[in-house]
Each structure stands twice: as C-alpha cells, then as structure tokens.
Design a binder for these strands. Structure first.
Lengths: 205, 205
DNA sequence: GAAGGTGGTAATTGGATGATTACAAGATCA
DNA sequence: TGATCTTGTAATCATCCAATTACCACCTTC
C-alpha cells in the first residue's frame, strides 16, 4: 500500500516515470535526508533499478535539486491559490494567517512536499543545494509578504509556526501521540483542529 | 583560528580530549548533519586520528548521541538559569519570552549547542537517535511550560521562533545578509537586536 | 629497569554506494 | 522486415567510510 504506485516495472513513458521517481524520492529523502538516502532506496521505492534513477537525473545531487524545485513550486501555487480566494482577501491578517496555516497542514497531508523542503533547509553548507534551498526559502518569504499582505513580523511568525510543524514531523513526534502526554499536548496546540491529517499520514505510509 | 583548540597532537588526559572531540563534533555535525559527516572530519577538526575518535566513543552513532545529550543539558541549564533570575520572575509572560529569546541567541553565539540539536531533530526515522532527539525536545518543552510559567500556546510560539532561527542558521542564510535585501530583512526581524551575534559567529568559524 | 597502564597512530578491511558500461527487450516507422 | 529509438536492467567499478587490528611512545610505580 505504498503511495508511490505499483512496484511492477512495466514500460512507461519517460515523463511519467520521472514523476514516479520524484514521488518516491520525495518520500525517502523527506524521511532520511539527503546524505542519509541512497539512490538505490529511491529506486526501490519507485519500483525500478538504481542505474535508471541515476541516468534519468544525471546525479543524486541533481535529483534532489529537481525535487526541491518541484516541492517549492507546489507550495508556492498552493499558497497563492489560498491567498487569491475572494473570501480570504476580506479577512484580517490574523485570520488569513490561520487560514494559510490550515492550508499548509492540508498540503502536508498530501505528502511529498514539505518534508523534502525541510531536509533541504538543513543543507546550507552544500555549495549547490544550499544555494537552491536559500533561494526557495526567500521566494516563499517574499510571496507571503507581497501577495499575502502581511507585515514582516507576521510573515516571520507564520514561517516560525511552519518550521515548528516541520520539525515535529521530521522528529516523527506524531508516533508518540498515543503514548506520551506531553507529545500529545504539544502536537495538539501545534496542529490544532487539523491534527488528524498528520496523524493519519504517519500511519498510512 | 579554530574554536576547537590546537591541531597539535600532544599527550592529553582522556577526559580533556573527550571534550575536544565533542567540541569538534558539534561544529562538524552541526554544519553537515549526521549522515553527511565522517568520523575522519571530526578527527581532523579535533586534531587527532580517526581511529581514536571511534575508539573513544565506540561508534559514530554513540558519539552523536553523547553530543546531543551534552547540547541538551547545556540548553536546559541555560534556560533554567535565565528563568530563575529574580528580575525575570517579575516580568510578564511576553517579556519573559523575549528575554528567553535573547538568552537563546546568546547561546547560539557560543556555538556548538543549537546546531547539533537541530540536526538531531531531522533524524526522527533513526531508531536510536530519533528516540534521543524526541525525548530531548519534550524535556525542553516541559521545562518551559512548568518552570517558565508559560501557557501551552506561549511555549509553542517560543519553540516556533527557535525553530525558525535554527532553520535560518542551518540554511546559512546569514551569508546573504550583506548582499540580499530580502535575507537581511528576514534575518533582521528574526534575530532582532542580537543580529550581530549570529553574523559574527558565521564569519569567525 | 622492567612491567603495566595510558594516550595515541598507521595500516587495513569489509561493506556500502554513486556512477558507468554494456547489453536486452519492446516500440515505431520506413 | 529490419533499422532505429526508447525504456529498462545486470554487472561492475572506483571510491568512500566506519570500524578493527596491531602496534608505538610515554608515564608511573615498584
């Protein structure tokens, strides 16, 4: 019951296979990080052979960069879509922030976007990926500030909440929800009413 | 001008050498992450040979766990010290939060504590380190809630701000402060008046 | 002054891993 | 039908890396 299609290796158009690989890469990189993931793990998750992954993307580094790009674009369009809804524009800044937060958790529930981004944020030291990741972060910041009608501090607070959420996810704190009172309390006040989305996402994969 | 003592390999008591290795490990692991760091890089940063690092700590994994433990303890005592100062107890919750935030940035300036912790937070998938990291996170949460006199939401907001700061550091966003307007704005409103501490820390190492 | 404990390294090893090469099976089209 | 392009794999390579082994140099203490 993996979210990354069948393990059967049929003959499939390259463009489609490419998306499969990116989906698989999002899952594995998102969980284990860039350095902690092997191209073979990605290949197995995608149901194909390791050399095909490398040949399709040229290198592991390039695969990760394309993954980051795709994830950032999806986050971008999702935030932009949420901000341009007519009923949202009428809300106060605080209400818009809360609305965006719920949209963000929804996006997390779909998987494959937020965790790879977060893993990229830890690679500032890498000359290639670091540059990519910094640029992506700043793109999101500017999007919220300029198209969201938020002040600097409001954007900062929104991003801060997002980083806490990301951290709790990469920590896999959700796995303690049923057994640890403190974890349940922290998760509850971090994810709010949308807590079920992230709990189910953990058990589904 | 490294912060990790001389590269000369003299004969030094094991306990002292151990601290040197932990200091070096904090720097390298903090920058490159767990999987992205080799024991040889730690050894070179500490000015000794790779086998000595492994023999002193048994394994790379155990070295990282001890590093996490030390970092968490230092953060814990620092927060506790800040909270128990008599003039702090008289402040409002919002003022105490701001005060703690400044203490946190001061701690960052000293190096070797916050970045390794953050790297640990990305290792939730690891059966050994993940457990360590989750426990450490919850210890800090309870400390703030119970000894800091904060509500759940206040602790959440404080942690969120901390995670944003950590992310900006691991992204090495500070390197763009002089050349990128957006980065300068974001860093300015995230670190506040203490921005110089983190900018200097970046150029000193 | 040897005997043992402590602090250290050189050399090596076994496994993992990203990448390359060579090849094969199916599709497309003349 | 056969030439060629596309989709894919098996086998292999070169490198890296954590860990082990075997050793050396100092210090203490009897």
């Amino acid at each position: 019951m993996s979210s990354v299609s069948e393990p059967k290796s049929e003959r499939i158009p390259a463009a489609q296979r490419r998306e499969q690989i990116l989906d698989a890469a999002a899952e594995v990189f998102g969980e284990r990080g860039y350095a902690g993931t092997t191209t073979d793990q990605v290949a197995q998750a995608a149901g194909i052979s390791q050399p095909y992954v490398v040949r399709m993307f040229g290198s592991k580094e390039n695969l990760f960069c394309e993954l980051l790009l795709r994830a950032r674009e999806r986050l971008e369009t999702r935030l932009r879509n949420a901000l341009t809804r007519p009923e949202v524009k009428a809300l106060s800044a605080a209400e818009r922030k809360a609305f965006l937060g719920r949209a963000y958790v929804d996006l997390i529930g779909e998987g494959g976007i937020v965790l790879p981004l977060m893993q990229g944020f830890l690679l500032g030291h890498d000359p290639v990926i670091g540059k990519y990741a910094r640029e992506g972060f700043l793109v999101i910041y500017r999007l919220l500030r300029d198209e969201g009608g938020f002040s600097q501090d409001e954007v900062r607070d929104f991003l801060a909440g997002g980083m806490l959420i990301n951290t709790l996810l990469t920590l896999q704190m959700t796995g303690l929800y049923d057994t640890d009172d403190t974890a349940r309390e922290l998760l509850g006040c971090s994810f709010g009413e949308k807590i079920d989305i992230v709990l189910n996402a953990g058990s589904a994969s």
